[in-house]
Design a binder for these strands. Structure first.
Length: 614
DNA sequence: GCCGGAAGGACCC
DNA sequence: GCCCAGGGTCCTTCCCTC
């Protein structure tokens, strides 16, 4: 299902000078089928219900910043263009044409990709199990947030990612939003992920028969390459996909929609064309692909959200992919040097990464790169209460790390907070040795259970010790959300696939990918076994020191005078003091496996001894 | 000028 | 009266060091 924390964009709400271009009051995505309400009325309704909330105030501030930035760039573009001579413009246009031609060379029409998307998945599963709900407006989620709504609810203007309390009122008062539906009560169902996972597994068994290497992007969405299957069985893509969808429906009782195209991006967009319970194909010719792309609003491109859509509109005056292609030179100027530039250039041609992937670019399972847990709660400022919440989160993350395959240990831990004003902060700490579990964790014999509990408690405590000072830095504060994240895992290669983001999926994987920590997902960059970190100056956190110690040291960037040559001291002190991030260096580090403190210069050897046989 | 880490944020489901 | 999630990935920007 296409939910989203950020609401999809809509035209600026009518009659509202104070409403921003970006902020979405309609609750209706252009991408959603089955709507029965009037856009404008829904917009006004939602706006009236939420205009005084801190959420909206915060959102409007963010949007205003975005808007100002886009307008500034637009102005600079105009000035730059006014200064360009005819000859310069012409030469630029030629260059762009050459670039587009070069991109064309990557066009691969030989493969048949398919994207399958379950229709209103969570709601469909619940209604299947409780057929009396079929005719009622149903939302999966709660008063806070809705994750899926059935098509009846959508006739009332209800949709995913809409706050539940607003949805309730819309269903009670359909006339207010121009819906002809009779007033009703929205039925809320608490999500049952175990059940949805079970159904997803059933669908995946079927998908696997059409492509053993298919990619599951989420519980309700899968990407298949049907090329080999079609060749082997001598059937058309249309027929194969129809059969596959029939089998999914027969097996699970739930319908799905599908898109067929020469690459994943086109297939993905096409999967939305005939929702629900339909399928759509873009034929594998350049003309068909371009014709399909040309009529699309840029917002339909996976990876183009409301912010980018607005930027494109303000900076380039462009709405559709056809216009985008025609404005390639300006796209280049506006987004020069950014990945967004090449993304847009390729996307408007209907090209996606699978055509540009490196040879042998097998996708395979994508390693998880971070693990986190966050909770929203009634805004709280009591330190003891917040500490308790932090401890709970550390415990949860610790348990999740333990339950991962293999068990995880990460070198970066982070605290996320959201103030009651909706201001979000992320503070992360880099460790020289990972915190977490040995890969052998859980392989113990009979006494394994007790050991597991001890280990989980130890990791919980380590996370808490690291993050508690970070939380205290924010006191006094009024928080509505807290989250704990662990990343930079010891071994990413072996971690199980947890799905991946579309933008990276559709964007380049090869030469354009940045080299750096965040781009280290390629097979060649994956860590193998325990990391062998260089001891980075002032980058060591000692898990054994008391919280009080930690706080003191984090205020005054510490220096181990006894471990430094005299001449270096002043320079090091200055350098450390200038760092924004507060880091801690102590003598010795605490082994994340056995908990024993060892001297720094022996840390690697010591820890490797635990994992040496990997 | 390039690199890399930290922080913020866009985007996806 | 209730009052805008949570789990991810990646990109951009800023700042620092080499």
């Amino acid at each position: 299902m296409a939910t989203g924390s950020s609401a999809p964009s809509a035209p600026a709400p009518p009659g509202s000078g104070e409403k921003s271009h970006l902020f979405n009051f309609t609750g209706i995505s252009a991408n959603k089928a089955g709507m029965g309400a009037d856009r404008k009325l829904v917009a006004d309704f939602v706006y009236e219900k939420s205009k005084n909330s801190q959420y909206t105030q915060h959102q409007l501030e963010l949007d205003a910043k975005q808007q100002a930035r886009a307008e500034l760039v637009a102005k600079e573009l105009r000035i730059a263009e006014a200064r360009m001579s005819e000859i310069e413009l012409l030469s630029e246009r030629r260059k762009i044409e050459a670039e587009l031609e070069a991109l064309e060379k990557h066009r691969d029409l030989s493969r048949t990709h398919c994207v399958v998307d379950m229709d209103m998945f969570y709601a469909a599963v619940e209604i299947r199990d409780q057929p009396s709900l079929a005719s009622k407006p149903v939302a999966i989620g709660g008063l806070g947030m809705i994750s899926t709504a059935n098509y009846v609810a959508r006739l009332y203007g209800v949709r995913a990612a809409m706050p539940g309390f607003i949805a309730v009122e819309m269903v009670r008062n359909p006339a207010a939003i121009g819906s002809k539906m009779p007033p009703d009560e929205l039925v809320f169902i608490t999500p049952n992920f175990a059940k949805y996972t079970q159904v997803a597994m059933e669908t995946r068994e079927i998908f696997r028969q059409y492509d053993p290497h298919f990619r599951a992007m989420s519980l309700d969405e899968a990407y298949l390459d049907l090329t080999d299957y079609l060749a082997a069985h001598g059937v058309s893509a249309e027929a194969a996909v129809q059969e596959m969808r029939d089998r999914v429906k027969a097996r699970t009782g739930i319908t799905c929609s599908a898109g067929i195209g020469p690459n994943r991006m086109v297939a993905k967009i096409a999967s939305d064309e005939r929702k629900p319970d339909g399928q759509s194909q873009v034929l594998p010719t350049r003309e068909a692909v371009l014709e399909f792309m040309d009529r699309l609003p840029v917002r339909k491109l996976p990876g183009c959200g409301k912010v980018l859509e607005n930027q494109i509109s303000i900076m380039l005056g462009v709405q559709t992919c056809a216009e985008l292609r025609a404005a390639a030179a300006r796209v280049k100027r506006a987004f020069q040097g950014r990945k967004t530039c090449s993304f847009l250039m390729r996307a408007c041609l209907g090209l996606s990464s699978d055509e540009l992937a490196e040879e042998g670019g097998e996708v395979g399972n994508v390693a998880r790169k971070s693990l986190s847990c966050e909770r929203t709660f009634r805004a709280e400022s009591e330190p003891a209460e917040l500490r308790g919440r932090l401890r709970d989160l550390c415990r949860q993350v610790s348990e999740d790390m333990a339950a991962s395959v293999p068990p995880l240990a990460g070198r970066v831990v982070a605290l996320k907070t959201k103030a009651s004003s909706f201001e979000v902060r992320n503070k992360q700490i880099s460790l020289i040795q990972p915190v977490g579990f040995s890969p052998n964790f859980g392989k113990g014999g009979e006494d394994g259970r007790e050991h597991a509990e001890q280990e989980t408690a130890r990791v919980t405590q380590e996370l808490y010790k690291l993050l508690e000072p970070v939380l205290e830095e924010q006191f006094p504060c009024h928080l509505r959300l807290m989250g704990v994240r662990v990343s930079s895992f010891r071994d990413q290669r072996a971690t199980l696939d947890k799905g991946q983001q579309l933008i990276s999926f559709f964007q380049s994987k090869g030469s354009e990918q940045q080299e750096g920590p965040s781009a280290g997902a390629g097979p060649d960059n994956l860590n193998t076994g325990m990391p062998k970190p260089q001891i980075q100056e002032a980058n060591v956190i000692d898990l054994d020191s008391s919280q009080e110690d930690q706080r003191d040291k984090s205020r005054d960037p510490p220096v181990q005078s006894q471990s430094l040559p005299k001449g270096c001291l002043k320079r090091v002190v200055e350098r450390l003091a200038s760092r924004r991030a507060k880091r801690i260096r102590l003598s010795g580090v605490c082994c994340p496996v056995c908990g024993v403190r060892v001297p720094e210069d022996q840390a690697n050897r010591h820890v490797n001894a635990h994992y040496g046989d990997q």
